[in-house]
């Protein structure tokens, strides 16, 4: 088994940060707890995957990040191309340039698995999305196994594991004095050459503590439940916000618009941007002329659950949910996908 000492790891990360873009979990926001709130997001700093300048900025002791790894592969906002006027007065399109090579350090196994879902949607069928593809190609994933499953996590119920190496290029598992290192892919091997790994005999890997596993609804149960009053009852307390979609590692809906901005120098720039969108928004499905087949809140809420567990598996041959538990923790009205799954799974198939 390969092994790296903590100090050697830090030195390697510091070197990496000099050579290329290093993304890693890092604490963001005010240090002090917000005075007087039950909001779990306001209890001190939250951890995000962000670009860091060295190992010192990395948060080592975190559960899961506030936002998933998705934001670095499908950014919240990106420019698809700018539209300029050429010398002949005709429009010229300039596509967004390639990004530099990146190392994504400390990605949790569930987030890496989320990329598998996004891969299926964005790359799995022709034509592939070139913006997503270039970020994916340029990034090497160094995973950091969870020492245990956290509150609200359910990766083990949807086929994942807190120490799964399936979707990363290199996986680190914390052990006494450092990390056990599994080099998974060729891309990982190329990166690992500079790590200075040691070979250690008989290294014992810790067994992460798991949360209780539960059974998922069958396809028949999903099919039979579509028109159930159950969705109205869950929808009763839904606020129709977009938290669940935006913290999700596998949600990928986007909106595209053109915008014109004027720089402080007075230059006009016209560009087409793409930004996150969510099926929970009221106007998401409105058609020209005003028809809205998903005008009711419970229809929109239902769509999100079906998208993860019914539509994506059929359309893209991928599991739509990785069990990261972010939507469970972040939902302000405690709409708990685990509860929904278990409620449906308890039903008699029609």
């Amino acid at each position: 088994m390969k092994f790296i000492e903590i100090r050697a790891l830090h030195e390697w990360l510091d070197r990496l940060a000099q050579e290329m873009t290093l993304i890693a979990p890092t604490a963001v926001g005010p240090q002090e707890k917000a005075p007087g709130s039950r909001n779990p997001a306001a209890q001190g700093q939250q951890v995000f995957y962000r670009q860091v300048e060295g190992a010192a900025q990395i948060a080592w002791d975190f559960t899961r990040t506030a936002l998933s790894a998705r934001e670095h592969f499908m950014p919240k906002t990106e420019t698809l191309f700018t539209i300029e006027t050429g010398p002949d007065g005709k429009a010229v399109l300039h596509e967004t340039k390639l990004e530099q090579p990146r190392v994504f350090f400390g990605i949790r196994p569930c987030d890496a698995r989320g990329l598998r879902v996004l891969d299926a949607v964005m790359l799995g069928q022709e034509p592939a999305d070139v913006y997503y593809a270039q970020r994916r190609e340029n990034t090497t994933l160094v995973g950091l196994a969870c020492p245990q499953m956290w509150e609200d996590c359910f990766c083990n119920s949807v086929g994942g594991a807190p120490d799964a190496a399936d979707d990363v290029d290199i996986l680190l598992i914390q052990v006494e004095g450092g990390f056990a290192v599994q080099v998974v892919t060729e891309k990982g091997e190329r990166l690992a050459t500079g790590m200075g790994l040691q070979e250690v005999e008989g290294l014992e890997l810790p067994q992460p503590k798991l949360n209780e596993q539960f059974a998922l609804p069958t396809q028949q149960q999903w099919l039979a439940s579509f028109n159930d009053v159950y969705w109205q009852r869950v929808g009763d307390r839904c606020l129709s916000c977009r938290i669940c979609s935006y913290v999700c590692p596998t949600c990928r809906c986007f909106d595209v618009r053109d915008e014109t901005v004027v720089t402080p120098q007075g230059e006009r720039i016209v560009r087409r941007v793409r930004a996150w969108d969510s099926c929970q928004g009221v106007n998401y499905r409105v058609q020209a002329g005003g028809a809205n087949p998903r005008a009711n809140l419970e229809q929109r809420l239902r769509n999100r659950f079906y998208c993860k567990y019914y539509y994506v598996p059929i359309d893209y041959a991928a599991d739509g949910c990785v069990g990261c538990g972010r939507c469970v923790t972040a939902c302000p009205v405690n709409i708990d996908i685990r509860e929904v799954l278990q409620d449906l799974a308890r039903r008699e198939p029609a």
């Binding site: 069928q125 793409r274 969108d277 079906y306």
Partner: peptide, 24 residues
């Protein structure tokens, strides 16, 4: 059928009716 859409190639997720995508 028509639907609001932003990609036309099954990526943006906008136009689904159940598991069917109007665009694709």
């Amino acid at each position: 059928l028509e639907a609001r859409m932003h990609c036309g190639i099954g990526k943006c997720g906008r136009c689904n009716l159940g598991e069917k995508l109007v665009c694709k």
